[in-house]
Write a protein that binds this DNA or RNA. Structure first.
Length: 729
DNA sequence: TTAGGGTTAG
């Protein structure tokens, strides 16, 4: 929430204080005139009677050191007041253990310890060098006394005079999330001409939202704090984390311009990561080169940011080249770098490469951690290999690693994508039992799974439940819901959902528009789809290659091939490279029109552009050439697709077999027919008739009968089933 | 003080 408010508010870049001239003269005047010495405190005077009592208590405590404190103090307990505690403490300053025990005894009698006594005890601990105990006492003091900071300052001069007490108090305030108390202490100290160390000031900087961080960064030097490289790095990181990478870069340049603070590997790595996160790879690489010129050696953080960016852009091979580069430069990749690479290959669906990297990683003596396992589970789930994903999940548990929300969500999403909603919800319950709280990503995966099963109402209900739990729908959730509504034919409701989404303060993106455009294209409403394209362009939303593919499909289906070709040109103009799907749509339609000349032209253009044909491309080309009776070309593409490990679809088998029979190439046709049967695909009725006649003619009665049975089962039974369903029986 | 994992469209 704080971060969000920082992102929304404009962040002003601070003016860097010049350490050579830290203060302007007016500031020096105002600081020096307001400085005063620490207060002269001394405990209030006791009466003679009280003094005698305190002496007796002190003597008993010291002389009977080995006895339980409770029994030593029991004769004094009824008279012992809070003032006595304060008067006894000076006598025990050389015995911290006794001080702590006395406080514990006093508290155990249901008496609140006075603020002054708590502060004094902390001072005694610092003065005796026991910083751990001091920290504990300071935590307690902050937690139970309203004016504890003031009291520590007030009693300082008399009891301690070791300024490290203020650093410890500052730490205690930060670690118990009392930022205001830390500020309060800072102001008090400034008024006495003192400041806490730069280390604790850095800890404060790192805990502040960006705008407050910047204001502290500018204000503290006025009081005498001298920032170091770590401070500047925290600022660079803060600015990068809210996307203000340009301003972060200015800070780095200011560091370079100064004599006292120079940017180090962390400064550069942080800024490089900032540029990588906003996708500015060129700037990131420039900085990477600058580092070497300045004699700074990139570390595994630096390399990992570059590798992450390349993987995100799908350039996994290039990313692995960077990994090899780092090894050659003597930087050993760690678990994080391997996990980044593994995740890159998982996203690419390249599971053999994932296996190879896991092997390499283990060979280097690195142990996969929970994040590595989650990436592996995600990769397997994405590829639909749920049995393997579950096996890795079990291995993770066996190794004593704790799955978290991300691990469970990866598995849940995998089951949802396979339509196994029962398994997905079982895991959802399991994570609840483990004490893990499903978040909006988990619910989006479940909701998307339900939508894809046609259960949009159930998805809606689930999301209502999610909202009742205090979670809010995000962009992905809305987009998934819009998709579910479109696919179930409720385009109007999908449009209304987009309106709701905007009302909830979430702006639609390229996904939202593309989904709706696809629905309109499939409904043949090209004008509406085009209108949406104009709307998204007006809003400055960059269409993706999928947006164009959706339109391309629409144009092709509406037989508007010229518009399709124009769209292809426009894509290139807009620097959005057409992919295999784009070309496949156009080729498919030209094939339907039996225009194999245009199809071949497009196929060649695609290859020239370096776009690789996929399984769909080959199936389209084979069917097209068969329809056009170009069996030579059809067989050539069949050979090519086999070489590349792709498979024919049933319609392509049918087309090829019929074409070959037509050309009397019966041996080849028979081979394909057998292959098709083995693959469990159904051949056309005509094809069965051809091979039944052929085998009968050749006297192969056994095979003839087998084919007759198969044909009856596949064709007659099926047509009867269709008949009954047609009549609603 | 800096880096890695999960949700949406063809």
């Amino acid at each position: 929430m704080l971060l969000r408010s920082a992102m929304e508010r404009p962040v002003r870049c601070p003016r860097i204080p010049d350490p050579r001239r830290p203060f302007s003269s007016s500031v020096i005047d105002s600081v020096t005139t307001s400085i005063r010495p620490f207060p002269d405190y001394s405990p209030k005077k006791s009466s003679i009677r009280d003094s005698e009592f305190v002496d007796r208590v002190t003597t008993a405590l010291k002389q009977r050191r080995s006895e339980p404190l409770r029994s030593v103090l029991s004769p004094f307990a009824s008279r012992f007041r809070s003032d006595h505690l304060i008067w006894v403490l000076p006598h025990l300053r050389s015995d911290l253990a006794l001080v702590v025990a006395l406080l514990r005894w006093y508290r155990s009698r249901k008496n609140p310890i006075p603020t002054e006594a708590q502060a004094i005890a902390a001072h005694i601990a610092v003065a005796s060098g026991h910083h751990g105990t001091a920290r504990h006492l300071l935590y307690e003091g902050l937690a139970s006394h309203k004016h504890f900071v003031e009291q520590v300052v007030y009693t300082y001069k008399y009891w301690c005079s070791d300024p490290s007490v203020f650093d410890l108090l500052f730490w205690a305030a930060l670690e118990s999330d009392r930022i205001d108390e830390a500020h309060n202490l800072f102001s008090h100290l400034v008024s006495y001409g003192n400041v806490v160390s730069v280390d604790v000031c850095n800890a404060l900087l790192a805990r502040l939202p960006v705008d407050e961080m910047l204001s502290v960064f500018v204000q503290f030097p006025v009081s005498g704090v001298r920032w170091n490289a770590k401070s500047y790095n925290i600022i660079i990181h803060g600015l990068c984390s809210v996307g203000k990478v340009g301003e972060a870069h200015r800070i780095l340049l200011e560091m370079e311009a100064q004599a006292s603070v120079s940017p180090d590997v962390v400064s550069y790595s942080t800024l490089i990561d900032g540029y990588c996160c906003v996708g500015e790879s060129r700037k990131a690489m420039e900085l990477f080169d600058d580092m070497s010129t300045k004699g700074l050696k990139p570390n595994s953080f630096t390399y990992n940011s570059i590798i992450t960016l390349l993987c995100k852009n799908g350039k996994v091979v290039e990313a692995e080249r960077v990994l090899l580069g780092m090894v050659n430069h003597g930087v050993a990749p760690d678990t994080v770098v391997y996990t980044t690479m593994i995740n890159g290959f998982c996203k690419n669906g390249n599971l053999p490469a994932v296996d190879r990297l896991v092997g390499e990683m283990k060979k280097s003596g690195l142990v996969p951690d929970a994040v590595t396992y989650t990436a592996l589970i995600y990769g397997l789930s994405r590829s639909g290999k749920m049995a393997e994903a579950d096996q890795v999940f079990q291995e993770m548990l066996h190794k004593g690693l704790n799955p978290d929300e991300v691990t469970y969500t990866s598995l849940i999403d995998g089951y949802c994508k396979k339509g196994k909603m029962k398994d997905a919800f079982h895991l959802h319950n399991e994570m609840l039992q483990m004490g893990l709280i499903p978040n909006v990503v988990t619910y989006t995966a479940l909701s998307d799974g339900l939508c894809k099963q046609g259960q949009v109402e159930a998805a809606n209900e689930l999301l209502h439940e999610m909202c009742a739990m205090g979670l809010e729908l995000n962009l992905c959730t809305y987009n998934s819901l819009i998709n579910g509504l479109c696919k179930s034919g409720n385009i109007d409701q999908a449009v209304r959902t987009m309106v709701d989404m905007e009302a909830a303060g979430i702006s639609p993106d390229a996904y939202s528009y593309t989904t709706l455009m696809d629905a309109y294209c499939k409904a043949g409403e090209m004008d509406r789809a085009h209108g949406l394209l104009r709307e998204m362009l007006d809003k400055g939303i960059q269409p993706s290659v999928v947006t164009f593919n959706v339109l391309m499909n629409g144009f092709c289906a509406a037989r508007m091939l010229e518009d399709g070709k124009r769209l292809l040109g426009w894509m290139v103009e807009k620097n959005i490279l057409p992919n295999t799907t784009t070309y496949n749509s156009l080729m498919k339609q030209y094939c339907i029109d039996k225009n194999m000349k245009a199809t071949t032209e497009i196929y060649r253009g695609m290859c020239t552009q370096g776009v690789m044909p996929d399984e769909n491309t080959y199936n389209i080309l084979i069917r097209g050439h068969c329809r056009a009776r170009n069996m030579k070309e059809a067989c050539y593409f069949h050979g090519e697709m086999v070489k590349r490990g792709f498979h024919l679809r049933d319609s392509s088998y049918n087309a090829l077999i019929k074409g070959l029979v037509r050309k009397k190439r019966l041996l080849e046709a028979r081979k394909l027919f057998e292959e098709m049967r083995v693959a469990g695909l159904v051949a056309d009725r005509d094809i069965y008739n051809i091979f039944i006649d052929l085998n009968y003619g050749q006297g192969n009665m056994e095979l003839t009968l087998e084919l007759c049975d198969e044909a009856v089962e596949k064709w007659l039974v099926e047509s009867k089933t269709n008949e009954t369903s047609k009549h609603g029986l």
